[in-house]
Design a protein around this nucleic acid. Structure first.
Lengths: 249, 249
DNA sequence: CTTGACCTTGACGCAACGTCAACCTCTAGC
DNA sequence: GCTAGAGGTTGACGTTGCGTCAAGGTCAAG
């Protein structure tokens, strides 16, 4: 029994273009090619195609499918590897979803979608790298709930406090003060209080380690740095936080 | 204040190539271009870039980012739409994961990854379309547990029973019997018994509606049809099931 | 013979840049 | 003033898995 390319496409629920493509890449050569150039497929080819489509449905790419089909790799091993990739993708999506939701909340709370306001949401969202590892997904759920529970006014107050703190840092730096000075350290004290507002949902009161970590982050990430007057400002704040961490925590 | 392309790239944690790309597509033109052709960016451009990168982190594509940036669409609306897409992607991944896991279990149970054996797992996995809607995700979890609880031997016995049934159908059809004949209906009776083996996890004993539904599925999907000797075989089985559904259920 | 369905082989398109290639330009040290 | 080295520019191709024309041959039915 033998079918035309269209027959096979319909049988298997795909398109003739796809079949030609699979032929091109050597994944599924036609079982016969007529003198007119027509491609014909037999039952074996159909079976093979069904395996291919199954693997594709599992999300494998063509190179991976070829590998599996040629038996160069253990099926289970290949699929397990793929499974890990899928799980990773899913958690990436989870983070994106969390991030988008948070952004929506912020917008609904009347905030502009501006980099210098990203910080506002910082303590109740996960962020890249280590932060994410350490306070992770559960933390986000909790902090999201915490944030949702607040009224518009409360949110605004929370954000305004932080803006004031940032402004005070900038003024102190402009006035030529050093990070270790008493007046600057007083600002840090307010900053720490502010950070502790969401402490219950972010792993307890600020520690010296976390405070230094934040400082490094402000410097290392332009989006945070922007909150404190760019790189120099962020460095100033980082140093101030480091002094506070050493002296008062 | 003004920065070179490299400066900006480092500040924002991206690459100069990306910045040029954004310039090309009109997303972020340099604030100034020197007589030497060098691109220069000012603070406004940096802010804009940060918004862009934020949106990109949220997974938006460039056209979507342009829309949002130009304010042609409400931010919240755009993000909500995007959120839906993300959720869809996630559930698609969930299904893929379930599917891959099932396939791995089957392989570990000693089965080949062949289309004609896909059927074996049918009743304990979700499948496309309506089936998925009706028995859905929870069903998968349960049926997966059911399947895991079986020993290798039990699995094989289960699968062998089905192969025998399929072979009997094929023999009957080859012998020229009609779907309504007593001997064919006897095969259907065994088929129904077999389907009922996993009945506890798939919504109770087979009903007439479900039996007809299965028959249609065998015909409509080449992967199932392959189990019963291709399209004609599947049609034969479908008709036999329909008779049984009408007479005996 | 005509019509219409089906087949063929190119070849471009897409998303968002990565990655050469070939070639200027600026800055700093000698 | 020269040179090295870092950094800048504009093309232009590569990536993934086909979708989608385009231009033209083939086949079955009326």
């Amino acid at each position: 029994m033998e079918w035309s390319i269209q027959d096979i496409a319909r049988l298997a629920g795909t398109t003739s273009r796809t079949l030609r493509h699979y032929g091109e890449v050597g994944l599924l050569p036609p079982s016969r090619i007529g003198s007119n150039g027509y491609r014909y497929y037999d039952a074996d080819a159909l079976t093979r195609l069904q395996r291919i489509l199954l693997l594709r449905e599992l999300g494998l790419g063509i190179p991976a499918i070829i590998e599996v089909m040629e038996g160069q790799r253990d099926n289970v091993q290949a699929l397990s590897g793929h499974l890990q990739w899928l799980e990773q993708e899913k958690s990436r999506l989870d983070r994106q979803i969390a991030s988008v939701e948070l952004t929506i909340h912020k917008l609904e709370g009347g905030e502009q979608l501006m980099a210098d306001q990203m910080f506002d949401g910082f303590d109740h969202t996960q962020y890249k790298g280590e932060v994410e590892e350490r306070w992770g997904r559960d933390a986000y759920r909790e902090s999201d709930a915490w944030w949702r529970a607040k009224s518009k006014e409360e949110r605004k107050a929370y954000q305004d406090q932080h803006k004031q703190i940032a402004a005070d840092y900038a003024a102190a730096a402009a006035a030529g003060e050093v990070p270790g000075s008493d007046s600057v350290q007083a600002i840090v004290a307010r900053h720490v209080d502010w950070l502790n507002l969401s402490a219950t949902v972010t792993g307890g009161p600020i520690t010296a380690v976390r405070l230094r970590y934040y400082g490094d982050m402000y410097v290392g990430d332009a989006r945070f740095a922007a909150n404190y007057g760019g790189l120099e400002g962020a460095e100033f704040v980082r140093d101030a936080l480091a002094v506070y961490a050493a002296q008062s925590l």
